[in-house]
Design a binder for these strands. Structure first.
Length: 441
RNA sequence: GGAGAGGUGGCCGAGUGGUCGAAGGCGCACGCCUGGAAAGUGUGUAGGCGGGUAACCGUCUCAAGGGUUCGAAUCCCUUUCUCUCCGCCA
């Protein structure tokens, strides 16, 4: 969410920066208009309150002196103020809400250098800071070469008898899956491996967050008010709770309404949780296989930083997510999302796309975003600097990575001609040392 | 789910209608004292909003939101959280 004071001071910069984003419902001039009404109201209200407070003090003194005529005179003087103050307070509440509602549906401002474009065709491949395609190729696994036609994950999974969409549909409907036996264990192994990696080697604190969250938490991480349709809700008391669409929600909100000391930053959190998404807007997309499910596991990373360090942290977090694929030996590329393809709250986003030989294409497996103070403002998360000043923190989030999609990537990249799946070396300790599953055994 | 007790500044804690943004203590910061430290001592120690170049001024905040009153930390209502006991429970 934007700071209205900043918009007031930089109206042309505001309009220019958001010109390349979609769905910007208000211009700087419109917002400033609401704000001017609001400030005029505050001024009137403050003046009336000042008068009331001063006079009330005099009444107190007069009462102490038992000067009843003076008391009566003073009370007559403030008689009309009560109504003015009450209506002024109501008016201010109304204008505060109006301004907040308007600000809360404006997307974040892209950082300088984010490519300008309308959709995913405007995204640009990224090879790391000062990186090139050549240097990237030295650390990323190459595409695997097959002596046979590689299959899609659901073909091998169903042939193994360990991935069942039909029974899942009977139990829960479309966009669910049942994994069994070695494949279920492999899914678990991937999740454990990634979580351990981030905790043991990348400096993140492991978190077991709530999976059901309040509307306020969702507002903090931008899911509300605009993206309510993407969520599942359960009734609770007179209200409701949402199933988290990502652990970004509870983990970023760990700092909501707090002021942390600068020397505690950066905070780095990671969690392995189920995620729940209604996929309301994606009917017909990716209906085969487990690419797009209502429920999936994901390892999520969240970082809380100072404003000065957030872009460096963004590069680090991207590297942490890439490390997962490098250690798994899966070929991938990184894309810098363009202005038209970025999420609502992001200043800049890198997507990691894993190579899926069965589909003969790259598919998103991780998304790493820096949000600046956009979310911090929404949930009032601040830090006290070494200079004593209190400012909003910066927040970042990234998948490290989606477990279900990583399973797909392993299945497709490590498939063998006999229908078995080789186990990447880093996962073997989590698989009782086995080197392959499925196939003719 | 039932019954009761509570939520005051970084922490503890006083405060039941008027000069209380809030005594006192702890902690912290700076200074004095000291060879240095401890002890002692002095000063300072929240955030939001509005106005102002600034110093500063005004206003709001004693869990949150409403209300009563000329005036609310203090009275009333609602919500929420914590604690104790009972019930239920992986």
């Amino acid at each position: 969410m934007f700071d209205i004071k900043w918009i007031r001071d930089n109206p042309t910069a505001f309009d220019a920066a958001l010109a390349n984003r979609k769905n910007v419902p208000f211009s700087a001039a419109q917002l400033i208009g609401i704000d001017e009404q609001r400030r005029a109201t505050i001024q009137r209200l403050n003046d009336a309150q000042e008068k009331r407070n001063a006079t009330s003090k005099l009444i107190g003194q007069a009462k102490a002196q038992k000067d009843e005529t003076r008391v009566a005179a003073l009370m007559a003087e403030v008689a009309g103020l009560k109504d003015i103050i009450q209506s002024g307070e109501a008016e201010q509440r109304e204008l505060d809400t109006k301004l907040r509602d308007a600000l809360s549906v404006i997307p974040n401002m892209p950082l300088d250098g984010v490519p300008i474009g309308d959709d995913e065709t405007g995204n640009i491949e990224y090879f790391g800071r000062n990186g090139t395609a050549e240097t990237a190729a030295t650390i990323r696994a190459p595409r695997p070469v097959f002596a046979f036609a590689p299959k899609e994950h659901y073909e091998t999974g169903e042939a193994m008898g360990q991935m069942d969409f039909e029974i899942a549909a009977k139990i829960s409907g479309s966009r669910f899956v049942v994994l069994k036996s070695d494949l279920a264990r492999l899914e678990r192994a991937i999740g454990q491996f990634m979580l351990d990696l981030h905790v043991d080697e990348h400096g993140y604190t492991e978190v077991q967050p709530p999976l059901l969250v309040k509307d306020d938490a969702l507002f903090g991480t931008n899911q509300l008010p605009k993206f309510e349709d993407d969520l599942f809700f359960v009734p609770h008391g007179d209200g409701r709770l949402a199933l988290i669409p990502t652990a970004e929600v509870p983990m970023t909100n760990l700092v909501r309404e707090t002021i942390v000391a600068e020397d505690e930053l950066p905070l780095r959190f990671t969690a392995l949780t189920p995620c729940f998404r209604s996929e309301a807007g994606s009917a017909g997309r990716d209906t085969r296989g487990m690419l797009r499910q209502h429920q999936f596991n994901k390892v999520e990373m969240v970082a809380i930083t100072t404003p000065e360090t957030s872009t460096d942290e963004h590069e680090k977090m991207l590297g942490d997510a890439e490390d997962v694929l490098q250690k798994l030996g899966i070929h991938y590329r990184v894309m810098t999302l363009c202005t038209g393809d970025m999420g609502f709250g992001a200043q800049k986003t890198y997507d990691i796309e894993a190579w899926l030989p069965g589909q003969d294409t790259y598919r998103e497996i991780s998304s790493v975003s820096v949000c600046g103070d956009f979310q911090a403002r929404r949930m009032d998360a601040r830090f006290k600097g070494k200079d004593g000043k209190v400012r909003h923190v910066h927040t970042l989030n990234g998948s490290g990575v989606a477990v279900g999609r990583a399973l797909i990537a392993v299945m497709e990249n490590y498939q063998q001609e006999d229908g078995s799946i080789a186990i990447p070396a880093v996962l073997q300790p989590y698989m009782r040392g086995r080197t392959s599953i499925g196939g003719r055994s």
